[in-house]
């Protein structure tokens, strides 16, 4: 009975990972690929680790599996957010049928060359800061 449960959990986790891989190949857009990837990979890894814990039946394995699962569940959204922000700022195209782009007016997302970033007097990251400083001075 326990073996059937472990086998079912293994198949479930592997199928979630397979779904993530199909999604990363078929989705039209970087942002959709990232969204598919993060959620289903976290869930698939959770099922695989649950199967591992049920298979070994030791408290040491269970605590390490819990730590790994918490770590993956915490870091997958962080890395996805970082990559998404970097891709958006560097001008990766949205899907052509995207209806709404809420960050459209907030950032200057013109792709810049390496020389422009390194040698310009006014690098793109300092522009937001200068604008904020001006705002605070006006408030005073």
């Amino acid at each position: 009975m326990m073996e059937i449960l472990i086998a079912a959990l293994l198949i479930l986790g592997a199928s979630f990972m397979l779904i993530a891989a199909i999604g990363i190949l078929k989705m039209p857009d970087l942002y959709m690929r990232m969204s598919v990837n993060t959620k289903s990979v976290t869930l698939g890894m959770g099922f695989l680790l649950l199967a591992l814990v049920l298979h070994f039946h030791e408290i040491g394995v269970a605590s390490r599996a819990l730590a790994t699962l918490v770590f993956i569940a915490m870091t997958a959204p962080i890395s996805s957010h970082l990559i998404g922000r970097a891709a958006y700022l560097s001008g990766v195209e949205l899907w052509s049928e995207t209806r709404r782009d809420e960050l459209g007016d907030l950032y200057q997302r013109r792709p810049m060359s390496m020389e422009q970033v390194l040698f310009s007097e006014n690098p793109p990251h300092s522009m937001d800061l200068e604008q904020e400083e001006k705002d605070t001075e006006d408030n005073f």
């Binding site: 890395s79 970082l82 970097a86 560097s90 793109p124």
Partner: peptide, 17 residues
Amino acid sequence: FLSVVAIAYYIEKARKP
């Protein structure tokens, strides 16, 4: 995770897709 964070930092600084 650490390598992905490093590459994301690099992409954001370089601003080139």
